[in-house]
């Protein structure tokens, strides 16, 4: 009786990730293809449109920088939603999603920081200024790294998922605080040199390549995220198969 009910539960446990794996296999090629298409279009647009008369060629950095920065925020939002999924709905895929998203988010944040720095050197004459956006993005980067470190430090995936979900949510609460507090701090100390990119104020000449690149980056994120989730599920299966092998070996030793 107990053997039977266990088998049933194991099956229903796996049903969800299994369906996800099948779905991932089906959609991944399409996502990847769309990503490549949009990137090709975006890069072509970025290099064929005119440069800014003030900034010259360097304005093209924007087409990488802005989408990367936007994704660094969106990735954290995805993680926060996944954290809610872990804690509130106990969805089996939620913690896989959060764990898979962290390194991707860290990479996009790093990309945003590096391109911002490259852009800042010709514009502001310095690789780094402690201005509002930069500081808040840097703190975001540190939070990603802390979360990755935490995930790596715990061996039991179920427990580390719930615990780091708590931290993701606390960090999410903190993001607006960091943003506004640094702006406040900034007005007191040094004149703001914040980049402003409100949609309508930007010239359509720049808007089209920027939007294309933003779509391309978003698609890239989803492609990477789904692939990373698939890898994480496989990694967990390998781990549990290994555990099983150890147990079986123990039983055979007893039988001998």
């Amino acid at each position: 009786m107990s053997e039977n009910s266990l088998a049933i539960r194991k099956f229903s446990d796996l049903a969800n990730p299994t369906r996800f794996l099948a779905l991932a296999d089906r959609v991944l090629p399409w996502f990847a293809a769309c990503t490549v298409l949009f990137f090709a279009a975006g890069v072509w647009l970025s290099f064929t449109t005119e440069g800014d008369y003030q900034q010259g060629e360097t304005v093209r950095i924007m087409y990488v920088h802005v989408p990367a920065a936007w994704l660094s925020m969106m990735c954290y939002t995805v993680m926060a939603i996944s954290a809610l999924g872990t804690l509130v709905w106990r969805h089996p895929l939620a913690d896989v999603s959060a764990k898979a998203a962290a390194p991707i988010g860290a990479c996009f944040t790093f990309l945003a920081l590096v391109t911002g720095s490259l852009w800042g050197k010709p514009m502001w004459g310095a690789w780094w200024v402690w201005d509002a956006r930069l500081t808040s993005v840097f703190v975001l980067f540190l939070m990603y790294l802390g979360l990755i470190a935490l995930n790596r430090a715990m061996d039991d995936p179920a427990r580390s998922a719930r615990v780091s979900a708590v931290l993701v949510l606390v960090g999410f609460v903190n993001i607006p605080i960091i943003k506004f507090s640094v702006e406040w701090w900034n007005t007191l100390h040094q004149p703001a040199s914040v980049l402003r990119l409100d949609g309508p104020t930007i010239d359509p000449e720049f808007l089209w390549p920027l939007l294309t690149m933003a779509v391309a980056f978003t698609l890239l994120f989803f492609t990477l995220h789904i692939a990373a989730m698939r890898n994480e599920i496989w990694r967990r299966r390998v781990t549990s198969l290994r555990r099983q092998a150890v147990r079986n070996a123990g039983r055979e030793a007893q039988a001998l």
Binding site: V139, L142, M143, L145, G146, A149, L150, A153, M154, R159, V163, S164, V166, L167, V170, G171, N174, I177, I178, S181, V182, W184, W185
Partner: peptide, 25 residues
Amino acid sequence: VAVALPRGGLLVSILVLPLAIPVLI
């Protein structure tokens, strides 16, 4: 968060410092 980690001490500082920045500011 780090209560169950064998060497959680350093990790606590790394996790907490970014969150404590607004207080400092």
